[in-house]
Design a binder for these strands. Sequence first.
DNA 1: TTTAAATTCTATATCATTATAGTATTTAAT
DNA 2: ATTAAATACTATAATGATATAGAATTTAAA
Lengths: 137, 137
Amino acid sequence: MILSKTSQYAIRVLSYMINSDLQVFSAQHLIQTLHIPDKYLRQLLTTLSKAGFIKSIRGREGGYVFARNADRIYLSSIIETVEGMDKYTSCLLGFSDCNDDNPCSLHEKWTPIREQLLDFLNNTTLAEVKNNQITKF
Amino acid sequence: MILSKTSQYAIRVLSYMINSDLQVFSAQHLIQTLHIPDKYLRQLLTTLSKAGFIKSIRGREGGYVFARNADRIYLSSIIETVEGMDKYTSCLLGFSDCNDDNPCSLHEKWTPIREQLLDFLNNTTLAEVKNNQITKF
DNA sequence: TTTAAATTCTATATCATTATAGTATTTAAT
DNA sequence: ATTAAATACTATAATGATATAGAATTTAAA
């Protein structure tokens, strides 16, 4: 759980939606399917809606649909919305002024791994996560 | 801050010790040099002592010294002691039953990055972190 | 033998994240 | 119009990590 629980929930929801044939997803349906705490997920869905990943349809027969194409939703955007990306971009030992010229003791070895991690988060879209074989959400 | 603050503190202390010419380090000295909260660091030093990385010398003129050679202290051992390694070895989306045969939607892309991360934590020793050029602890 | 400097123990407080609860609002079907 | 099914808002509770506090213990120096 390097990701916060809230980030996990957000990615699981959107990943489920892109891998499903349904168009509209009610909060109730997502709660039961993904086993995420009721009120907590409802709040999160509102957050994801305000951030523009999904849009809500209020009232009876309502629910949530994608607000933009999945190939334009990056993992890092989702994470930035729910917990912020600082944790993933910053120095492993927490120094705000750590850089190549004035590194901490782990900087040299950590930098290439961070690069790969950020490359993954910054360049992986929801569309790339679509896979018919996946059964776990 | 992918690492917990406590892990950061622990690694900073040991990394400072291995990079210093001193032999014995009092809690007071470490607190003032590393700017880590007094009582919190004292508790942590006791934890690191009980875990066998350092040993304490009680009473006047006391302090802490390494309990074993730095080339036998791995980053993952330190992390395991203070916060546990589960967070770094487990599924990115939090599934306990995620594996190659029954993967989550991020499993395939995440696995190689996790491998590198674990390789770094499991195989980097304090001795490798010794570097005269480092001034940040 | 007294004192000062040090570690150890245990209890409590603070803070951010996660979880829960109740009410208000919206809208389609009847 | 009324009702039922849905989202939105706001307040509070629970949990875990981090931080603080004070008393107890140990030991070398004076």
